[in-house]
Computed example of a mutant assay.
Amino acid sequence: MARGARAPAVQQAFVLHQYDWSESSLILDLFTREQGRLAVVAKGAKRPYSQLRAVLLPFQRIQVTLSKPAKSTDGNPAEVVTLRAAEWAGGSTLPAGAALFSGYYLNELLLKLLARQDAHPLLFEAYAQTLPQLHANEDAQSQAALRAFELRLLVETGLLPDLSVVTLTQAPLQLERSYGLAAEAGIQPLSVEAGGLDGSTWIHLQAALLHGSMAALQQACAPVLPQLKSALRGLLHYHLGGKPLRTRQVMLDVQKLLD
C-alpha cells in the first residue's frame, strides 16, 4: 500500500439482495453497520471455485473489506464500491419455512425504506437480533419480533410519531382511552371497536422504543399483536407509496396453494 493511502474499510454487513452483473460477478446490496446500505461489486463471486460463494448468503453476518470509493465523472465518490474480501462473522443458520419469508420481508423493507450510505447502527443491531427470533411456525415470539423490528425501522427512518401523545395536539394520552395510529394523522382518539389500543399500551411501546432494548420492545408488543400488526401494516403501506411488497404477495400465494 502506498504511503499515505487509506486502508480499505472493514465492517460488519448482511447481504440484502444480489444481482447478476456479468457471467462471473455480482452486484450486492449490503446493509453495513457503519455506512448503512451500500451497492458493492463482488468480482468473480459466481465462479465455481470462488470462496465468496459460500459466504455471500442472506441472513448471515459477514465481515467485508471494501475498496476505497472511486471518483465518478462529477468528482464525487462513486455509488458502487468493490468487495475485496468477505468472511463469515458468526451467527445463526439460514432460516427455514415461514421464517425464511419473514427474513426476506425484513430485507425488502430495508431495501425500500433506507437510503444508500445512511448509517443506522441501532437498526443494524436490531436486524441482527431479530433474525434468530424468526421461527418456521410463525409463533407469537416471531410475530412480536417482527412488530418490534417494524417499530424500530419506522423510528430510525423518522416515519413513526411519538406514541405517547396525540400527534395533532401533542396532548398526553389518557391511560384508559383508546387511540389509533393513522398513516397521515399519527396517534389519534379511536374507539376500541375500530381497532384502537388504550393509551397505556401506546405509552408502554414508546417507553420501550426509548429504552432501546429489542427484548423490551418485543415484550411490549406481545400482548397486542393483532391490533399492532394492522396499525403498522397501514403505516408501512402508506410510506411504501401504496405498492405491495413482493415478499408478502409470495407468502399469500403460497398460503393459497397450501389451503
Rank of each mutant, 00 (worst) to 15 (best):
M1N: 12
M1W: 10
F14N: 10
S25C: 03
S25K: 08
L26C: 00
L30W: 03
T32R: 00
R33H: 03
L38E: 03
V40N: 02
V41I: 09
G44C: 11
G44D: 11
P48C: 11
S50L: 04
S50D: 02
L57S: 00
P58A: 04
Q63A: 10
P69T: 11
D74Y: 01
V80F: 02
V81H: 07
T82V: 02
L83S: 10
A86H: 01
A89G: 02
T93Q: 12
L94Q: 13
A99S: 07
G103S: 12
Y104Q: 01
Y104A: 05
L106C: 01
E108F: 00
K112I: 00
K112W: 02
A115G: 14
A126H: 03
Y127W: 09
L131H: 03
Q133M: 10
L134E: 04
L134A: 06
H135M: 02
Q141R: 12
S142R: 09
A144K: 10
L146K: 06
T167I: 03
T167Q: 15
L173S: 12
E176K: 14
L181C: 14
A182S: 15
L190Q: 14
L190F: 13
A194P: 04
G196D: 08
H204L: 15
Q206C: 09
L209K: 02
L210Q: 14
S213L: 12
Q219A: 11
A220K: 09
A222C: 02
A222N: 08
V224G: 14
K229I: 15
K229A: 13
R233S: 14
Y238L: 07
K243Y: 07
T247S: 11
R248G: 04
Q249D: 04
Q249A: 11
Q249Y: 03
V250Y: 03
L252D: 02
Q255H: 03
L258Q: 08
D259F: 07
